[in-house]
């Protein structure tokens, strides 16, 4: 048994059974964020896919993979977005190496 169930993605609305007012506010905001604006829907879907990978949320990865396809992106473009997320995650880990160096230097002669 996995903690993540694919069917749960389509059950997301059930969260709103409790404090529906809060869920409605979230959904209004969430939907508004997806619309064409200064960024296109396609660009936003690629950002969503990248963030989904950075968060490693399987629901979001599934949902934004579909959004990317349905806004016309292909696997090359999606993979580049995933590399961006991964590179920033990698860079973020790596730059913390300075913290380690600092810590070591602080107690070293």
């Amino acid at each position: 048994m996995s903690y993540y169930e694919e069917d749960d993605l389509s059950r997301f609305g059930e969260i709103g059974k409790h404090r529906p007012d809060l869920f409605a506010k979230f959904m209004d905001w969430y939907q508004a964020c997806q619309e064409d604006g200064a960024l296109s829907k396609r660009e936003k879907a690629l950002i969503g896919l990248a963030v989904a990978h950075a968060l490693q949320c399987p629901y979001c990865i599934d949902a934004y993979s579909q959004s990317c396809l349905e806004s016309g992106s292909n696997l090359d473009q999606m993979t580049e977005a995933i590399h961006m997320a991964s590179a920033i995650r990698g860079g973020a880990a790596l730059i913390h190496g300075l913290q380690a160096h600092n810590s070591v230097h602080k107690v070293s002669m």
Partner: peptide, 14 residues
Amino acid sequence: NPVGAFLPPAQSAI
């Protein structure tokens, strides 16, 4: 037409 089980993107964009 989509190469798979998904909807087409906006016509003008694609």
